[in-house]
Design a protein around this nucleic acid. Structure first.
Lengths: 157, 157
DNA sequence: CGCAACTTGGTGACATGTCAACAACACCGG
DNA sequence: CCGGTGTTGTTGACATGTCACCAAGTTGCG
């Protein structure tokens, strides 16, 4: 491998900035979410995805794919959330192997209690720090990178 | 807490896109780094930070602060890297409590072998997917968010 | 000086994530 | 309908990260 093209000053600033922002944002959002709602970010993501479905239920594999988690990780995590009464497992009617994760009433209350504060934190620390042009650029740029990484054309929109 | 301001369509696209990009980028960069160089991202970050210092050495607390890691996490991680011969610990001459992490020759070879491929991957999956304007916007926006989260004024440009 | 308060780094217990292996079932071509 | 092949979800061992606590050393103030 010959000498690669290193990052120039602007590129390095973007790359380092991205990583530091990422880390700080994560720490702060996780901290507030745990303090205000007693949920970790992974907990919230699971509950949030479930609550967005019509029936408040998803196949394990479907949920794992949406979240980009391994099945193993999701299975372990669901077991822990089940212990806490946030979700339950049901057998899948149409596939004897499958399981379905179902939001419990307590789980639903937990997301609903957590959501306003969490959205407010996302606003306070990220969205409201950005100009509308930056919000738009972040959306567009993310879609393009996602499209590349998933081997599909980016939505042009 | 009354009804919060939810995210509008553009904001939601940016927020979801940011998180998905983050996750996919992480998975892919970590995968390539492990495959090509046998290093995890945390390994690489430690080695990279050390190799950027004049003496290839840093106080534990200094390194932890730079990386935004807890001291405990760093201490555990350094122990594991020490086992593998990538770094060593030395006593600090000026502070009896302190330890200094030092890059070993093997550690230096490891980063130098890993760096070109890793930079190339960052380019291939992120930087080269972005227009110069987007690179610049990402840098600027990150700095502003970082400034907010660290309670200091954002560097203006 | 002498002592209280803080800082530094390490440790063990525990929470979380990864990986490989497995059992149960679905699917499909002969 | 049957047997090979792939999919689904679970499990256990292990790697990594977090948290509370501690021992040793430093610092600053009376």
């Amino acid at each position: 491998m010959d000498e690669p093209r290193w990052l120039d000053e602007q590129e390095d600033r973007a790359w380092r900035g991205y990583r530091r922002m990422r880390r700080l944002l994560d720490l702060e959002l996780a901290r507030e979410l745990m303090q205000d709602a007693g949920l970790s970010e992974p907990d919230y993501d699971v509950l949030s995805d479930l609550s967005e479905t019509p029936e408040q239920r998803l196949r394990l594999s479907e949920l794992a794919d949406r979240m980009l988690w391994s099945r193993s990780r999701l299975s372990h995590h669901i077991s822990r959330m089940q212990q806490r009464g946030l979700v339950t497992r049901e057998e899948c009617a149409t596939d004897g192997r499958g399981s379905v994760v179902v939001l419990t009433p307590a789980g639903r209350r937990a997301v609903e209690a957590a959501a306003p504060g969490h959205v407010a934190a996302v606003r306070r620390h990220l969205i409201d720090r950005l100009t509308p042009a930056e919000v738009s650029a972040l959306g567009t740029l993310s879609q393009r990178v996602i499209g590349h990484l998933t081997g599909r054309p980016a939505a042009e929109h």
